[in-house]
Design a protein around this nucleic acid. Structure first.
Length: 538
RNA sequence: GGGCGCUUAGCUUAGCUAGGUAGAGCGACGGGCUCUUAACCCGUAGGCCAGGGGUUCGAACCCCCUAGCGCCCGCCA
């Protein structure tokens, strides 16, 4: 069974109505790891719906959280905002300085980072039923009840945190972080509690009060999280392994949740996504691939597929190199398999049946439009093939022409293919394109190639030159010349092609050679061959 | 120190809350496609399921122990 279906099944034992949540603090650039959080929720929601449950997906934006530090991408002037809530501070401009103009227009620091992310989510088919801005939720009193209970039960909550997490809270600890007169929630001492008012003294020695029902502050994270579960009725939430560690915030949260009046949601911890060979995603070390950047490389369904095919507890190495091409081609191949059907169902072993069901689920959950059944693309243009064509043909029209000629598409390319070519070009021109797929059509013969050619039959190259100078310029004809000449000389095809690969690409292998040559100008090819011949006779 | 996860063919892995002959993809090898090695099709080889113990008629699958690797435990998913 697919992992999302197992979770949905477990949830169905609890209730018909499911509220699946995700929460992210918009403190900096979003990366593909955040995408896993959201997609995990989205896929579970779809699994619930498929099972006939009533399911909603709510996305909590933790914009009530304070700015923790001046990140690398921020100007030093952000120092003054440390401790201030993300919904309340200006967004950075391209230099990392506070952009007051945009702030005046109503764009906060949180909005700045959130905007592009939400946009990416739309492209990737994530259907969020409700976005909850935590800051606004506090302001409007949604968290009032939970906040009052927490403050009234501060001893019990303190006991849970100390016992479960094993860390000691200091004397001053209180389950409420008020905002001081400057807008900061750092360095404040609680001096009293009189439902619903918290009395405090800030770092400057100024005193004040904070009404917990009016959002004049927030609950500390370990209490804030279960409070969200309770007031919004969350029944399921996936979270990163940091929260899932023993004594972590889920462990304390599930007990605090009970004090606040509700059972904790069904948990799922998910593993990190790291960038192949570089390490875990981290905004601070600059090891990131943003969701938008990822979407520029691969079609959104491939990103969904990446998440659905891996169980949440499975670590993912996001490989932007050749593995990405393989992933995309694998996806397409599986769509084809699905369309072909499982064959005689009865004759399959139980294992094979399970595998089939899972394959089906993976593809269903990969669809951008949940109402669309997976179907094989009408054209079988693989990523591999497109990667080659995009490198040989600089103009899009040339690519379409080539695909038409080879019969892979009929007529004009559809939108899907247009998009894929655009992405392929972005990929090829960017830093992530795998070197092993890069084609370097030569304009001269390298020493290395020359030394290979010296041990070969020079007449063969000469006859190729002759044959290609007057044949019809098409892949089939070119291939015919190469093979025919080789056969006449009893040269194994393998050797013949290697010879040609060395001349054209300066390596001993490559994609279908004839199709490359057919894409080149005849004169270009002849020039190269002539150079090779010249090199031999010297 | 506490905890989580992983360890199945060369590589990536499925199967583990239905315990009953180990599935797949890539790669390799062979063949076919009127003739490449990154296309396509067919086939072959390759696994004492990390190690040990236990439960069972029977364990990759359940329980215990050990080892290796990765990661999390100051609100960075």
């Amino acid at each position: 069974m697919h992992w999302a279906d197992s979770i949905a099944k477990a949830l169905s034992h609890r209730s018909e109505k499911q509220v699946i949540a995700s929460g992210i603090t918009p403190s900096g650039e979003f990366h593909i790891g955040h995408l896993r959080e959201i997609l995990t929720s989205d896929i579970i929601k779809r699994a619930c719906l498929r099972l006939g449950l009533d399911a909603q997906f709510v996305f909590f934006v933790d914009d009530a959280d304070p700015l923790r530090k001046v990140y690398d991408f921020l100007d030093d002037s952000y120092e003054q905002y440390i401790g201030h809530q993300l919904a309340n501070i200006p967004p950075p401009d391209e230099n990392g300085s506070p952009d007051f103009d945009r702030f005046k227009e109503g764009v906060s620091y949180a909005d700045h980072f959130l905007g592009p992310f939400i946009q990416a989510l739309e492209h990737i088919g994530v259907n969020i039923d409700e976005i909850i801005y935590n800051y606004a939720a506090y302001k409007s009193g949604k968290v009032a009840e939970a906040s009052r209970i927490a403050c009234n039960q501060s001893d019990a909550i303190r006991e849970i945190i100390e016992r479960v997490s094993g860390r000691e809270l200091d004397e001053q600890w209180f389950p409420w972080n008020p905002i001081d007169s400057d807008g900061s929630i750092d360095g404040i001492t609680i001096t009293g509690w009189e439902d619903p008012i918290v009395y405090w003294t800030d770092s400057q020695g100024r005193e004040g009060l904070s009404d917990v029902t009016k959002g004049e502050g927030k609950l500390p994270w370990r209490v804030d999280w279960p409070a969200k579960w309770v007031w919004r009725g969350v029944t399921m939430e996936p979270f990163g392994k940091d929260h899932g560690a023993a004594g972590g915030s889920y462990d304390t949260g599930k007990e605090i949740s009970v004090i606040l009046g509700e059972q904790p949601p069904y948990p799922t911890t998910y593993e990190w996504i790291s960038l192949k060979g570089v390490g875990a995603m981290s905004s601070s070390t600059g090891v990131t691939i943003g969701p938008l950047e990822a979407l520029e490389l691969v079609p959104p369904e491939i990103l969904r597929y990446l998440i659905t095919r891996n169980k949440p507890n499975r670590h993912i190495d996001f490989d932007t190199g050749s593995a990405l091409i393989e992933l995309a081609d694998e996806y397409q191949k599986k769509l084809g398999d699905l369309e072909k059907g499982p064959g005689n169902w009865e004759s399959l072993s139980r294992r094979q049946q399970v595998a089939w069901e899972k394959l089906k689920a993976q593809l269903i959950y990969s669809q951008i439009d949940p109402s669309q059944a997976p179907h094989a693309a009408s054209e079988r243009v693989t990523f591999r093939h497109l990667a080659m064509l995009a490198q040989i043909r600089k103009e899009d029209a040339g690519v379409w022409e080539s695909l038409q000629r080879s019969g892979l598409i009929s007529g004009q390319p559809d939108d899907d293919l247009l998009r894929r070519l655009e992405m392929m070009r972005t990929w090829i021109n960017g830093p992530h394109f795998p070197e092993s797929f890069r084609l370097r059509i030569q304009t001269s013969i390298s020493d290395q190639a020359q030394s290979y050619l010296d041990g070969r039959d020079g007449d063969y190259i000469f006859s190729i030159h002759k044959g290609l100078s007057d044949c019809v310029w098409g892949a089939e004809e070119i291939n015919g010349v190469i093979c025919e000449e080789a056969r006449q000389r009893e040269i194994p095809l393998r050797d013949a092609f290697q010879t040609m690969y060395w001349i054209v690409l300066n390596q001993d292998f490559g994609p279908k050679l004839a199709s490359i040559l057919a894409e080149m100008e005849r004169q270009e090819v002849l020039n190269l061959l002539q150079l090779a011949i010249d090199g031999l006779s010297s």
